[in-house]
């Protein structure tokens, strides 16, 4: 995928998502969390027109819904009784608690889905595979998986023609065939891995110290973006220390509606999470005005 956050050096989106996860976990306020969730969903929709969300929304709603319902039923810390359910009191504080848990869970999940779209396995390896051997081993393993899948598929097809099936027949025969299949897969893979080893040796693997190709450049724009994100993140954390990102439940329940300085910090958090959307928007706008 190109465009948006992918135009940056991987360090920028990684910082963004790590910082984003921290902010979601420290923010305990329904309005803040709802804003964050909406902005994240917005970014996800912009990135792939909702393809990822459509696949995952069931799981997200189920998990969030579970906490939304279960927290008010089991949490009994608070003073504002809303009503009685089955003879137990349902408290206003607990309802807020449930809403916040559900929202922060949903926000974390959407954040992680977005992260997965932007930070691919290679980018992660690039960032953390500073030890070249580790990066190499990881890449070789990554390459090995589709190869194994392909071989297993091929073996199964051919063996089915010989009447050795793992999907039909008595269980014992299926087990025996399955074991033979795996053994064959390993033999074949080792056999073919020998050829890979030859090809690696032929290209000088093991002759000396390896270097690592760096496909990403750290440009001035990356520095700027990183500084900006760090500043906004710092400001938001400061707001958290001041208690503005948190809805006080005890000893006294704070009103849910924002007041005073909290509006400012909502803006700050909005700017932080809206950063990818801003980048995408700027790109779209540039295209429009370019013509």
């Amino acid at each position: 995928m190109n465009g948006g956050m992918n135009t940056f050096h991987p360090a920028v989106p990684f910082f963004f998502y790590a910082g984003g996860a921290v902010l979601i976990m420290v923010a305990r306020h329904p309005v803040f969390l709802a804003t964050i969730l909406l902005v994240l969903i917005g970014h996800s929709l912009v990135m792939d027109r909702g393809r990822t969300l459509r696949r995952w929304w069931g799981a997200i709603v189920l998990m969030s819904g579970f906490f939304l319902v279960i927290t008010p039923l089991v949490n009994r810390l608070g003073t504002h009784i809303l009503f009685y359910f089955n003879g137990r009191p349902v408290l206003e504080e607990a309802v807020y608690q449930g809403v916040m848990t559900a929202l922060s869970l949903a926000a974390l999940l959407v954040l992680f889905l977005n992260y997965n779209q932007v930070i691919t396995a290679e980018k992660f390896l690039f960032l953390f595979g500073k030890l070249p051997q580790w990066a190499l081993v990881a890449t070789l393993a990554v390459r090995f998986v589709p190869e194994l899948q392909r071989r297993l598929g091929d073996i199964q097809t051919v063996q089915r023609a010989r009447g050795l099936s793992v999907t039909a027949g008595p269980l014992q025969a299926r087990l025996k065939n399955g074991l033979a299949l795996v053994q064959m897969l390993l033999t074949l893979s080792l056999e073919e891995a020998l050829q890979t080893a030859d090809s690696m040796k032929a290209r000088g693997y093991g002759t000396g110290k390896r270097s690592q190709y760096n496909p990403y450049r750290f440009r001035p724009a990356d520095r700027l973006a990183l500084l900006f994100l760090a500043a906004v993140f710092g400001l938001a954390l400061f707001g958290w220390r001041l208690g503005d990102l948190v809805l006080t439940l005890r000893p006294v329940l704070e009103p849910v509606f924002l007041h005073g300085r909290e509006w400012f910090y909502l803006f700050v958090v909005g700017v932080y999470f809206g950063f990818p959307l801003f980048i995408e928007g700027r790109e779209a706008w540039r295209w429009r005005s370019w013509k």
């Binding site: 290679e122 890449t139 073919e192 891995a193 050829q195 890979t196 390896r210």
Partner: peptide, 30 residues
């Protein structure tokens, strides 16, 4: 050296990575 089997002589999972594999082994800079 180029071998017969197209699959088995590839070590990396991306084309770019495969191309620079030999150069990395020689310790060349980016």
């Amino acid at each position: 050296f180029v071998f017969q089997d197209p699959d088995n002589q590839i070590a990396m999972d991306r084309v770019l990575g495969e191309l620079v594999f030999g150069l990395e082994n020689l310790g060349m800079d980016t």
